[in-house]
Design a protein around this nucleic acid. Structure first.
Length: 571
RNA sequence: GCCUCGUUAGCUCAAUUGGUCAGAGCAUCUGACUCUUAAUCAGAGGGUUCUUGGUUCGAGUCCAAGACGAGGCACCA
């Protein structure tokens, strides 16, 4: 966390805070940022009674228990002082209430709470209650106070948990003057448990009529605007926890991500695949053409790089007889950021012995269909200006055919390709014809591919890990799956000839800088191939892009909980 | 790394040609209200206009540099 990073801009940093008048207590926030352990704890007793959390049944509880007094403060409440209305004053108002709670014997930081009914479940119970009944069932719900409305000595709360929202009504007459002191200490954003009867308000809203309240956690920060929420996309990513609370559909999207990953795993497991974990710290970053992040191991005093792909270790496992393996994990590429790129991202790679790239096309379709179903994505929808239809089988189109249709060049004639490429401003002099061809494809064909479409049979020179087509040494058995102009998956019939693999590792393609090339000898991998790797199909899917696609997210940062950011200056 | 755009109260946003323009809503505080729904009503407080320089009688506004972000380019076979 950057210095003061939890604080939106304009919020005074630690320096600013230290100018506040002494408050008689340490500043918990600073303590946390230093990472120094113990905070001064007028409000935190060492051993909380909440360790023995079993509560009285709700039938005939003592009022005192329902209002949950927990402890007596061991120091008098401090005096806070700050100008009204500033950020500091907003926090002061909340700290004052926190101290007031402590003075009332309430632990403002709560503890274990059993027998909580999810709000969605409480709602369905409530639906069964007659509109004019005052004998609805009693429930305990817990969550965050999102809205607060008072009408005289009556307070309505909107309480949210992971399953939904429900209205709470608290009445001074109903709970008594002592308990009302606790209600006076509630702020937007606080976490509370509510015991009460389900029923309907006079205006017809399902409501929990509170008979008891358990304080679970005080919020010391002002929540974002209750109507607009947090709209600054930078703040939304840096303070994702707030975005999850207030952002429209944000939580749903990350829930969908989890369901998608679950569906991917299930699809593979159903086909007999074994999930494994390869090393992220490697001596040589292989399996893709990307610059790696560099690091260092102290005890071994050796340079290491973070992996850029999963491929080479999974193929070693094919040699080892794990005939169907996959890994779902993070890879790291030291490259720029864009709406489609984050330097760390999640990749699926799967390898199936005795298969080929056709096997992988079937698998890809199965994974996409299962993932779409898990995410609740319709079969047909619009995304990024493209109409997408997920009904299999997906279209299969040859690389050369697409290039010919789109550009009019003759893909089999390097001179023709070079001429057209030059017309698109692509450098051709001194570069391998297949690299030029690849550049031309990316510049012209990619963006036109609404898809999903399997682009098959790639120029061999740009595919050093791929088996060549029988009798066609210039064509590699590879496909990429495109959707809405974006590469979503990449698969090969895997090259298992160790001599050819070694030769290809040695080949530096003309026109490619060394750090962008895949020409990195991995002798240990070659050694593994020499022991005999079964013919196999291999598949890679970018999980982040898959989630973008299935949740119609315009940017990869919308599907990564904590995307990379520069540290925020100031605070 | 390059180009364009943006940054005003805790949050969401105003501020005409450079001229009493630093303002509103939410939030906060005080008061009223026992059925509210972004509750309402009355009042109060709250600002390093991202930072640093410059031009000017005068800068939120114009210029330069920097910070951070968004989009595009490059990189990402």
């Amino acid at each position: 966390m950057p210095s003061g990073g939890g604080c939106p801009r304009g919020c005074p940093g630690p320096e600013g805070r230290s100018e506040r008048p002494a408050t008689g207590r340490g500043h918990p926030k600073r303590q946390n940022q230093d990472g120094t352990g113990s905070r001064p704890s007028p409000n935190r007793p060492g051993n909380r009674q909440s360790r023995s959390p079993r509560r009285e049944p709700l039938g005939a509880p003592a009022t005192a228990d329902l209002w949950n007094p927990r402890f007596m403060p061991d120091t008098p409440p401090p005096v806070h002082d700050a100008p009204k209305g500033t950020g500091a004053a907003l926090e002061k108002a909340r700290r004052d209430k926190l101290d007031k709670l402590a003075a009332l014997g309430i632990d403002p930081w709560g503890g274990r709470l059993d027998d909580v009914t999810p709000i969605a479940a409480a709602r369905s119970q409530g639906e069964a209650v007659a509109k004019d009944s005052d004998a609805g069932p009693t429930v305990r719900v817990a969550g965050r106070i999102m809205l607060q409305r008072s009408a005289g000595s009556l307070v309505f709360l909107d309480l949210h948990d992971r399953t939904g929202r429900i209205q709470i009504m608290l009445g001074k007459k109903q709970v008594g003057p002592e308990a009302w002191k606790i209600v006076d200490c509630l702020d937007l954003g606080d976490l509370v448990g509510i015991d009460g009867r389900l029923g309907w308000s006079k205006t017809g809203e399902l409501t929990v009529f509170a008979a008891g309240l358990t304080f679970l956690a005080k919020s010391l920060e002002t929540p974002p605007d209750k109507y607009h929420g947090l709209v600054d996309s930078d703040l939304r990513q840096r303070m994702r926890y707030l975005d999850l609370i207030h952002g429209e559909g944000v939580r749903d999207r990350f829930v969908a991500r989890s369901r998608i990953v679950e569906a991917v795993r299930r699809t593979l497991a159903d086909r007999g695949y074994l999930e494994v974990e390869g090393p992220t710290l490697q001596e040589t970053a292989g399996g893709a053409a990307a610059r790696p992040f560099k690091t260092h191991h102290n005890a071994l005093d050796m340079p290491l790089v973070l992996r850029i792909a999963l491929e080479l270790h999974l193929k070693r496992l094919l040699v080892g007889g794990l005939e169907r393996v996959f890994e779902l994990g993070r890879v790291y590429r030291n490259e720029g950021v864009s709406p489609r790129h984050n330097p760390e991202f999640t990749m699926l790679e799967a390898y199936e012995a005795y298969g080929d790239y056709g096997t992988m096309m079937d698998l890809t379709e199965a994974i996409l269909v299962a993932a779409a179903r898990a995410a609740g994505t319709p079969e047909r929808f619009e995304w990024m200006g493209h109409t997408v239809n997920l009904a299999p089988p997906f279209r299969r189109a040859k690389y050369d055919d697409l290039l010919r249709e789109t550009t009019g060049c003759d893909p089999t004639d390097p001179a023709s390709v070079a001429a057209v490429a030059a017309g698109h401003g692509i450098e051709t002099a001194g570069r391998h014809p297949d690299v030029v061809k690849s550049d031309l494809f990316e510049a012209t064909v990619e963006k036109t591919l609404s898809g999903p479409v399997f682009v098959i049979d790639y120029p061999a020179a740009v595919c050093p890990l791929t088996k060549r087509k029988a009798g066609q040494p210039h064509v590699a058995e590879r496909f990429e799956l495109y959707v809405a102009g974006m590469e979503l998956a990449n698969a090969y019939t895997e090259l298992n000839d160790p001599d050819l693999q070694e030769e290809l590792f040695r080949t530096q393609l003309a026109g490619l800088p060394a750090d962008e090339s895949m020409a990195r000898m991995d002798t240990d991998f070659i050694k593994a191939l020499r022991h005999g790797m079964p013919p196999a199909g291999g598949l890679g899917i970018g999980i982040d892009r898959l989630v973008m696609f299935l949740t119609a997210a315009p940017s990869i940062r919308d599907v990564i909980l904590f995307p990379i950011h520069r540290p925020r200056a100031g605070g």
